[in-house]
């Protein structure tokens, strides 16, 4: 279980991080390590990464050619996450801000 300080630090950094969206969809061979799914080492990872600055509108997208050509449905999936990211921020920002202000009163 995370420590309280970890949780409070994470909430704070999350609020500061809500101006930039990072979306990643990656493909490769996977393995289970200590109950978590990870990529096996020493392989070429295919996929897309996007960085969207919500303040000035800059979008940076990197995509591997093979992924783009062979997996159009996964490209579409990635794009759907980009579209939904902003909605998630809108949905959570009020709850998280309220949480921080109430906890600050107590701490």
């Amino acid at each position: 279980m995370s420590t309280i300080q970890d949780i409070l630090d994470k909430i704070n950094s999350t609020v500061n991080d809500m101006t930039v969206l990072e979306i990643k969809t990656l493909m490769g061979d996977l393995e289970m390590v200590n109950g978590e799914i990870n990529f096996k080492p020493d392989q070429d990872i295919q996929g897309i990464t996007s960085r969207i600055d919500l303040v000035d509108g800059d979008i940076t997208t990197r995509i591997t050619e093979e992924f783009y050509n062979k997996y159009p449905e996964l490209v579409q999936w990635h794009q759907s996450r980009e579209a939904k990211g902003n909605e998630i921020i809108e949905g959570n920002i009020l709850t998280v801000s309220r949480m921080i202000s109430e906890l600050r009163k107590i701490l």
Partner: peptide, 10 residues
């Protein structure tokens, strides 16, 4: 919760 998304597919 900040909207970031990380997907692994295989």
């Amino acid at each position: 919760i900040d909207g970031d998304s990380f997907s692994i597919v295989s």
